[in-house]
Design a protein around this nucleic acid. Structure first.
Lengths: 206, 206
DNA sequence: TTCGAATTCAAACGAGAGTTTGAAAAATGG
DNA sequence: CCATTTTTCAAACTCTCGTTTGAATTCGAA
């Protein structure tokens, strides 16, 4: 394997993943991608059938990697107490605040999608989001075992929303007038805070 | 007043407000605005010095209207119990889910900004967000009177985040596999749910 | 080595964006 | 009513975008 053409393909994917994660789909131009990947502009159309096709590929990769990683830890979380499992879930959700690793980029790409969902994403979501959200639903079910499905779904979304607001607005939160800086220790502090609040909220029975 | 040229100006503002709220800044073209407003394309540059200037004006209007409306109710909320005030705050945050009125549009415009903040917005935010967030901070302070400023800020953001995730992802939540439809009764149900969870979370002392 | 297919490349294309232009029209104030 | 300013208008301009083109090059198997 690793034919020469695969190298080009790979360079494009890697560059595109970084740029899409950083700026989103619309604000990332093909010219920026090929400049970063150091390949010819037409290569994107040749290998991926256009910008959409490339994006679909990046999106699939991010989605697959994330669901795999989440499902890996599903078993571990089952063995923990519900409070510890919740704390771990929140910590993982906040992880993109910490670094620029692959995991963070994948989360960031999916975060962009919740802003202005592309047709590609909507399809992907309806097909493969079930196990992802299912994890969150199972988690909140341990706090509210008698709740109906609709309530559990809302609770799962609620849980994700508490975290994503900090992901999405990180830079603005750091500016005045709020001045909420989320560096490494700040993220850990926040994770514990959110865990406590979420536990408190779900802890009381309906 | 109401000089003829003000009519053009007003038509542009109204049309732009609707389109910006619906699609966001990038996806709204000048040609779409002038078509809806039934004015000449150059009018935007004449009256507002370009698309940016028009957007600044719309943003200012939305921001001012919202903060005024929120601050109007600040006194009422002070008279309520902390639980009732929290519930009312959440209900107001979720209100854009209900209709297409002016208030909903303003919220929607600011929501777009949390996605990809323009320079205009960052400045506006740093200048005028203080009273807005201050309201939320005061609200959570009633639950956690001994907490420090940093914790209160995080709590206020946390509170807003719980609501905005439902605003932002409304359409996707309604689709399979979640199927969480937020019609009029659904919003009321959700508001009560969120109130209960938020109260529970903040209720416990740090 | 050689020939056909796969891949790379520079250049140009067409569509859509925001902005500018300069003349025409309307409104304003003396 | 006239002179001047303000406002409107259609058209063109410039820039960037994603895509296409067709030749040149490289690759891979016979």
């Amino acid at each position: 394997m690793t034919r020469p053409s695969d190298i080009t393909r790979d360079r494009i994917i890697k560059a595109a993943e970084r740029l899409f994660a950083e700026r989103g789909y619309d604000a990332t131009s093909i010219r920026a991608i090929v400049a970063k990947a150091r390949v010819n502009q037409a290569a994107i159309n040749y290998h991926f059938d256009g910008k959409d096709g490339l994006y679909r590929e990046v999106l699939r990769g991010a989605f697959r990697a994330l669901t795999e990683q989440q499902l890996e830890h599903a078993d571990e979380m089952k063995a923990m107490s519900r409070e510890a499992a919740l704390a771990e879930f929140i910590r993982r959700q906040l992880r993109p605040l910490l670094g620029r690793d692959e995991y963070s980029r994948h989360m960031r790409i999916l975060n962009w999608e919740t802003v202005r969902p592309t047709a590609v994403f909507r399809k992907l979501l309806s097909e493969e989001a079930a196990p992802f959200m299912g994890l969150a639903v199972e988690l909140v079910r341990r706090f509210q075992p008698e709740a109906d499905q609709r309530t559990l779904t809302a609770a799962a979304v609620w849980l994700v929303g508490q975290c994503s607001v900090f992901l999405r607005n990180r830079e603005q939160l750091a500016d005045p007038p709020l001045g909420l800086v989320l560096d490494e220790t700040g993220v850990e502090w926040l994770a514990q805070l959110l865990s406590r609040w979420a536990t408190g909220g779900l802890g009381r029975r309906v």
